[in-house]
Design a protein around this nucleic acid. Structure first.
Length: 417
RNA sequence: GGAGGAGUGCCCGAGUGGCUAAAGGGGACGGGCUGUAAACCCGUUGGCGUACGCCUACGUUGGUUCGAAUCCAACCUCCUCCA
């Protein structure tokens, strides 16, 4: 573990970022003697990235921290094609406007994790629409087509699984891997990019780029993937009750982000601390060794560290304070989701099931009724037994708020506004 | 172009005229046990209404029938084999 020469390789190996590498020893040697430029591509299929993208982002961050240069490649062009890797079905085709909209809002996330600029190890952002949009079909085919054989492409998992499951794979999607391979070549030419990184499902795509570089330009390129992240009990990372764990506060509040990490399974704590925080390994080893309920302390540290990186120190502290107030003191922290209702409405009385919907704890009145019937609903920490019970001004507490809870973990405040 | 098969709720999948808001499983949510953990046990899982109830739903559109997810017709999509 410790016999690597470069800080970069040593770090990612000991923190668990490495799954496969085209030539780890050569990469290690390279990183020990020069500034390596490496990129990771990001889809623009949603307006924000989620926890699943966090590992690649941290990988870029470590790359930079160990003295190298990260490139964030926005898939403004490739998103128009759609990556078939790891998917049973084709993605819905997004409009160009939508893609650009997503791209813009995703960009801002990276500034929290990377330093952009013009220095040797300052990060760079590129958009593959810049070169893909204007490709000429026939010239492109003639120049790069001969380097790819269908025989080989059919052996890649992304293609193979579709065929085996008899799910359609369109020619559009089939082209994706060629475009991604070309991206790598383009980045190597433009910026001297040495390496492409990504999740393990990107291995095939990455290899294609490495080979294309060798065949066309005779350059030595490297590929490196990180393991597919699942929780210890096998679930995919990044899901909560309300959907994905988004990285932008517009989609998921810092408090909920903090909560996500706080609720990590015991068995994942050590692994996640290595991947999603920058605590020294020795400290992590101490934390993950905590027994029984004590490991909750480790989870709080994980949550604080991860939230600090994503949303800033202040937001993270507030989230932690809210959680402490809410869960450990049984009160209600400031960061809990809050909704306002009019004084008139409260004076008239709002049926209990309805106010749970208004507060966003339930998606429909029916769901709220079921919650109440199942004894999962509480108002100011008192169980709600009658679903039609009127919630009125009398229910406001001393601070002028009503605390609603759905289950033990989901809380929301209602205030007069 | 020809022949055959398929399209069901968040997902998988059963159902071939009424007892079907649709078996079963997964997921999700709630309860119990705990430590805001896992595992396990129990419950819930289309919308609206306090409720007897109403509405929407089995690819799409029409039709047969007292009554259709189930039968018929056309269309759309996908799969397999043949040309």
């Amino acid at each position: 573990m410790s016999d690597y020469q470069s800080d970069f390789v040593r770090t990612i190996v000991e923190r668990g970022f490495l799954h496969q590498c085209t030539d780890l020893d050569a990469l290690d040697a390279l990183a020990a003697k020069k500034v390596v430029t490496a990129y990771i591509g990001f889809d623009c299929t949603a307006p924000s990235l989620h926890a699943g993208s966090l590992m690649p982002i941290m990988l870029l961050r470590w790359l930079q921290k160990t003295g190298h240069r990260p490139i964030v490649l926005m898939g403004g062009g490739t998103t128009k094609v759609g990556d078939p890797s790891g998917k049973d079905e084709s993605r819905q085709i997004l409009t160009e406007d939508k893609i650009n909209e997503n791209l813009t809002s995703i960009k801002s996330i990276f500034s929290r994790y990377l330093d952009f600029g013009d220095g040797a190890s300052d990060a760079l952002m590129a958009n593959n629409a810049d070169w893909l949009d204007d490709l000429q079909y026939i010239p492109f085919l003639r120049e790069y087509g001969p380097h790819f054989t269908i025989n080989r492409m059919l052996t890649f998992d992304s293609v193979k699984t579709r065929l085996e499951r008899e799910h359609p794979l369109t020619f559009l999607e089939f082209n994706y891997m060629i475009l991604q391979a070309y991206d790598f070549l383009e980045l190597a030419r433009r910026y001297g990019c040495d390496m492409q990184m990504g999740g393990s499902d990107q291995w095939g795509n990455i290899i294609n780029g490495v080979e294309l570089g060798r065949r066309t330009d005779g350059t030595s390129l490297y590929g490196l993937t990180s393991p597919l992240l699942t929780t210890a009990s096998g679930a995919k990372m990044g899901k909560t009750a309300d959907g994905a764990v988004w990285l932008s506060s517009d989609q998921l509040s810092a408090y909920n982000f903090w909560q996500y990490w706080r609720n990590t399974e015991d068995a994942d704590v050590g692994r996640f601390l290595r991947l999603f925080t920058e605590l020294p390994i020795a400290e992590i080893e101490r934390l993950e060794a905590l027994d029984g309920a004590e490991i909750n302390e480790a989870k709080k540290i994980l949550a604080l560290e991860a939230t600090t990186l994503c949303h800033g120190a202040e937001a993270a502290r507030n989230a932690a304070a809210t959680a402490e107030e809410t869960f450990e003191k049984g009160g209600a922290g400031n960061d809990l989701p809050s909704t306002e209702v009019s004084e008139d409405a409260l004076r008239a009385g709002i049926p209990a099931f309805e106010i749970f919907c208004i507060a966003g704890l339930c998606k429909s009145n029916g769901e709220a009724r079921r919650l109440i019937k199942g004894q999962g609903a509480r108002l100011n920490d008192q169980p709600v037994s009658d679903e039609t019970r009127a919630v009125t001004l009398d229910d406001l507490d001393a601070s002028g708020a009503i605390k609603l809870s759905a289950g033990k973990k989901r809380h929301a405040m209602v205030r007069v506004g």
